[in-house]
């Protein structure tokens, strides 16, 4: 016992170093597949409040730019609405069901990281406003990510620029489907996988959401193809995609609540 105590007092520094370092590495490794790390999240209430205060101040100082942005968003949405074929139809029944399929919840990003392998955004609204896990997040320019966690006041989003993000997309006008995966660390680029080598695609082709999942409706802008490579012996292209949305700047976002999600998942089960 005395020897043990002597040993501990002599080597206490290296012991505590080893213990705490192991703990840190454990936390880093388990960050992605753990469900009970709530107290470390920025959606955690106290940290969330502090972040929100800072965000409010920053918001106030940026009001001019924000007004411009909102005007642009409104113009874009009006333009889309007036040009849409549903607007011109006289059949109010169809019109209603199409409008009420998707509910759009406006919100803002109050905390975000774009420089890590596993980036995260935090939204400043939560389940009280109707935001829930699995809903898609878009900005006026294109898609942003998917809600992964939500409590009463905040929601945590996995953006496109996270290594675990997977999004089903299609090449506009050509109909090939692929999956969008991100590789660190460039937040303006991502990669497209599972496009077979017989596909007739060229650089400059536009990618839109496929509408296969219940997260995003069909036809939202994602990005453009910048580079196409074919590995020898592979059946699939390696494709680089440049994102249309600048995720470093995006601030005002909309959450999409798809009303028929439950019904769709039920038949697909």
């Amino acid at each position: 016992m005395r020897n043990l105590l002597l040993f501990l007092s002599k080597y206490n520094a290296i012991l505590i170093f080893a213990v705490l370092e192991t703990m840190s590495i454990y936390l880093i490794i388990n960050y992605n597949n753990k469900q009970n790390e709530i107290f470390l999240y920025s959606s955690n209430l106290l940290i969330g409040k502090i972040n929100k205060k800072r965000f409010d101040l920053e918001n106030y100082l940026n009001l001019n730019n924000k007004n411009e942005d909102l005007k642009r968003d409104n113009a874009y949405i009006f333009q889309k609405y007036f040009n849409s074929r549903y607007f011109k139809t006289d059949n109010s029944e169809i019109n209603d069901s199409l409008v009420s399929d998707y509910k759009i919840i406006p919100t803002s990003i109050c905390n975000k990281s774009i420089t890590h392998r596993n980036n995260r955004f935090t939204l400043d609204k939560g389940t009280i406003e109707g935001i829930d896990v699995g809903m898609g997040v878009i900005s006026s320019r294109g898609i942003v990510g998917v809600v992964r966690k939500a409590n009463e006041e905040f929601a945590s989003v996995i953006p496109l620029i996270n290594t675990i993000s997977r999004t089903s997309v299609m090449v506009k006008g050509k109909g090939y489907f692929g999956i969008l995966k991100w590789k660190p660390y460039d937040y303006k680029k991502t990669t497209l996988e599972e496009i077979p080598k017989h596909a007739n695609i060229i650089t400059g082709d536009t990618l839109i959401t496929s509408g296969f999942s219940t997260i995003f409706p069909k036809g939202l802008m994602v990005g453009t193809i910048t580079d196409i490579e074919l590995d020898r012996g592979s059946n699939y292209y390696n494709i680089s995609v440049s994102l249309i949305n600048d995720l470093a700047l995006v601030q005002d976002v909309y959450v999409i609540d798809y009303k028929k999600k439950g019904l769709k998942l039920e038949v697909e089960e």
Partner: peptide
């Protein structure tokens, strides 16, 4: 004391981590 220094470092790191959403990274 050395173990106290390391403990303080861990706590400081964890607090910074909470703001950065990167558990364990700054602490380590």
């Amino acid at each position: 004391k050395r173990f106290l220094l390391i403990l303080v470092a861990f706590i400081t790191g964890i607090i910074v981590d909470m703001f950065y959403d990167t558990p364990g990274l700054h602490a380590g």
